[in-house]
Amino acid sequence: MTVTPSIWLIGGTSESRELAQILALNHLPCTISVTTESARSLYPSAPLLQVWVGQLEGDRLQDFLSSHQIIAILDASHPYATTISHLAMKAARKYNLPYLRYERQSINSSHFPQEKAIKNDKILSLPSFEALIEGDYLAGERVLLTTGYRTLHLFQPGQERYHLYARILPAVTSLEAALAAGFTPDRLIGIRPPISLELERALWQHWQITLVVSKASGTPGGELIKRQLATELGVKLILIDRPALAYPHQTDDLSAAIAFCRTQLCDRLGDTSLPQN
């Protein structure tokens, strides 16, 4: 059986779904990797689009690259999913594969001038979760964590000291991690993003939240909504900075990412082998 050379699109974000849709419309062969079966349904069904589910560790990565005839890597993973990005960059170097990081723009005060206009000092950026915990910023607060289930274990030692709530994905893995970290069911809510401003506001007010901890994940991650509500409600907002990775090539331009895929496929297959729109 002949396998068509393919782009490896690292999924897990709304941007990766958008990229997948455009690649499908352009009939560009693509294999999307995601870590959970539930994520499969988030991507379009198309003849040249495949969704691979699992963890790419050890020999599985080499098998994946070979079996799917990967010729280039488009990394659209979550900004905080550093493990898969490190793995992809290492594979790009080892197997001489072109690599492009596609990442959502970060947000600063210029995106949200209301903060500056009212001299809002309740929105704080910290370099890491360690800095958050070591700085004891949570004392005396009713804290909502919207940082994902993988970080919840960091807060387990503080369950006796702090009043902690968490918003997680409605998945068994997320719930198990939250319960293992000491969260009781009445302090958990399972919702899949995106979260509307109205729903976010209602949740904060229902739990009488005074401090929200989130990742600086940009507009697709709901950061603008959290900034707006923090300003509106006078709630403290702590944003954990994105990890700093030395990507060899990076863009936030959707058209540039698609052009990268087309160029790599054209170089391998030739222009006549790819449908033109």
Rank of each mutant, 00 (worst) to 15 (best):
T82N: 05
Y80C: 02
K119A: 13
Y80W: 09
H68V: 07
F129H: 03
D121M: 06
R101N: 03
R93A: 07
K122M: 08
E57F: 12
I73V: 14
H78E: 02
H111W: 00
N120C: 10
R60E: 15
A117L: 09
M89I: 09
Q69H: 15
H78S: 02
S128H: 05
D59M: 12
T82V: 10
A72W: 04
S66D: 12
I71G: 06
F129C: 01
P113S: 10
K116A: 11
Q62N: 15
F129T: 01
Y99E: 08
E115R: 13
N96E: 10
H111A: 00
F112Y: 10
L65T: 10
Q55L: 15
R93P: 00
K90T: 12
I84M: 08
K116W: 10
K122D: 07
H78R: 02
E115G: 15
H86F: 10
I107G: 00
L65A: 13
G58R: 10
S77K: 02
Y95V: 06
S85H: 07
N120A: 06
L87K: 09
R101W: 03
S128C: 08
P79S: 08
P98S: 12
L74M: 15
L100Q: 05
L100H: 03
D75K: 04
K119F: 11
K94Q: 14
M89L: 06
L126A: 04
D121C: 05
M89V: 08
Q55N: 15
I84P: 05
Q105K: 02
P127L: 03
K94N: 12
L56Q: 09
R93Y: 06
P98M: 14
M89Y: 04
I118R: 09
H68N: 14
A88G: 11
F64Q: 14
L56D: 11
S109D: 01
Q69A: 15
K90M: 09
I123A: 02
R101A: 02
D75Q: 05
F112N: 02
H78W: 02
L74I: 14
I118A: 06
